[in-house]
Design a binder for these strands. Structure first.
Lengths: 343, 343
DNA sequence: CTGTTAGCGCTTTCAA
DNA sequence: TTGAAAGCGCTAACAG
């Protein structure tokens, strides 16, 4: 029995050609310091023998793996998928592969993943912290070790030395709410997510500020911070919220596409007409805007572009002549409002 | 300036403790052959010195990376995401990480990815071929090299030595159509995807067989094979299909959730009542069933479980005492029909 | 129980 | 333009 597959390696080529391993290595590398004729002989022989370079050996020797580690809170959220697509696209162009891990919304998994990425498998790390993440020591440790890292989305604390990319959440919701106000709406409800997430806090802030800026009274009764993380398509919380309301809202600003959709379903069920009686705005614009009838106006975030930007920053760090005193960059991406039938 | 970070390695610990590298290695491995007191000293020192094992060196030396490479046609299809979640869950339990690449529905990218996975970075491969994939030589090459691989979903040709996992597409659509027939529907339309995809062919086959089995006449006019791959939320093809129809269908069996949704939107727009005038069934049940009003009856495929099963097979291959004459396993998973308001 | 040593396959000085 | 040789950090066989 043959021991596994004994792959052909540089040595085999070298021996067959009666030259040194070093020369073969150089030839395969298109190194100009090797005679053209030699290079050609090597290339031909390598192909003929079915040579495949060993990535691991290369990495050990060169100190580079060309892999970027990505940690996201979950796989099945359209936002993260879009960001990952953007990351992958940019990374691929620059000859990096990506290794995605989910922290499953758990701080412990996040830490575990980070530790595993510290083991030299990846050249750099992209991380979107979970809502549970309150301590940033695990991240700082990475930074201190000099491992390039870029954070995105839900970043609560600024970590010195770590770039981070986010969207202008507060401005986005400010504009969206202002848009409703300018349409003459006054009893504007707010539906956000768990308060632990910085993004929801920021979106809430934008809502409040817009209302205040236009002197619209704020009713506690019209504000809901959903506690569910999961993107369910039935949410009793939202249903209860509207059913038990003594004020009739004439608009609802929601903090995710899904909340927007659930809101529309609930309101229709309660007899409201959209957009005649009430306008609804979603947040994200990740494909759900056109599913429903009426179609839903959404704050659109540039998720794919975000992924690309993140990766650009990371690759910059990777190429940087190890300036340990790397100045942290915080990038905020702009959003836009995509108008549809729900407003 | 310090040259990058000089990570502490086994040698450093060994020197500090005046013992050999091998002992340190064993101690860290919890190898019982090392004295307890030594092990403890090593562990303590390792922690104190901030030792982190080098995964790459480990892999080169051991010949294992504990990484599974996954190639899917695209990132942003709920089906693939669910499968990947299943893969990840199972892999994680068995101490493997997964490296996902998208072939972007292109045969060339698929090949490129496969070649890159041949370079020893991954211990095994999971692949869902694109619709463009007609030649399987690139896959056979992997098999011949003895690299463990499992195929899933869109497999047209049986590759000797490669397990593959799929769902019972034909049976699934047979049952779904039969369900409609038993409800008294007779003018049952079919909406499928591009014919290049084996899954769509199989689903079509099930439709035809069910109709024949019940002696229902088949009208060419009621059959559409969509040419769009993309999951758009407006599809002129489907709209045209129903608008130009001379027969009024009383049911529509569609081959994806999205086609189902588009069908419902179109039919409602054309004045049909669902389910009174016409029943609609989607395929996949990947979260869209409950979005719309009315909710959509769907064929439900066990995507997450599929991912787990796939990985189970792969890990079996990985652990197998290199039986080159590995008998190919073809696993077909059962589906079910989830009844909702559209039927 | 511990140490010595020979790799794993490739890159990269330094010499020739 | 090419070769010899020293690693990269770890594992594992063998010896003691």
């Amino acid at each position: 029995m043959t021991l596994k597959k004994s792959r052909v390696k540089l040595e085999d080529i070298a021996r067959k050609l009666n030259i040194s391993i070093a020369t073969v290595s150089r030839a395969l590398d298109e190194n100009p310091r090797v005679k053209l004729s030699t290079r050609e002989r090597v290339l031909k022989t390598a192909t003929a023998m079915g040579y495949t370079p060993n990535q691991i050996a290369k990495s050990l020797s060169s100190g580079k793996t060309n892999i970027i580690g990505v940690i996201i809170p979950r796989y099945d959220e359209p936002f993260f998928i879009e960001v990952c697509r953007g990351i992958d696209r940019y990374a691929h162009k620059h000859n990096y592969k990506i290794l995605i891990s989910s922290s499953r919304n758990s701080f412990e998994f996040e830490r575990e993943n980070l530790i595993s990425f510290e083991r030299g498998l990846v050249d750099g790390i992209i991380l979107s912290p979970t809502h549970e993440t309150e301590m940033f020591t695990h991240i700082k440790k990475i930074v201190n070790k000099g491992i390039p890292i870029v954070l995105f989305d839900n970043v609560r604390e600024e970590v010195a030395g770590a770039d981070h990319v986010m969207i202008e959440d507060d401005k986005a919701s400010f504009s969206a709410v202002e848009f409703l106000i300018n349409k003459g709406r006054k009893k504007i409800a707010f539906i956000g997510g768990i308060k632990e997430k910085q993004v929801f806090q920021d979106r809430f802030k934008g809502y409040i500020e817009a209302m205040k800026a236009h002197n619209i009274p704020i009713h506690e009764e019209l504000i809901l911070h959903c506690s569910s993380l999961d993107r369910e398509f039935e949410d009793p919380e939202i249903h209860e919220f509207f059913r038990g309301m003594s004020i009739q809202p004439d608009a609802v600003f929601t903090c995710t596409d899904n909340y927007g959709l659930l809101t529309m379903k609930t309101l229709l069920k309660l007899g409201y007409k959209i957009p005649e009686d009430v306008s609804v705005i979603g947040f994200g614009d990740l494909g759900l805007g056109d599913v429903f009838v009426p179609s839903m106006t959404c704050v659109s975030q540039p998720s794919f572009e975000m992924g690309q930007k993140i990766t650009e920053l990371l690759i910059n760090q990777l190429n940087e002549p190890n300036t340990m005193k790397h100045r942290k960059k915080v990038i905020k991406l702009k959003t836009s409002l995509v108008l549809r039938d729900s407003t």
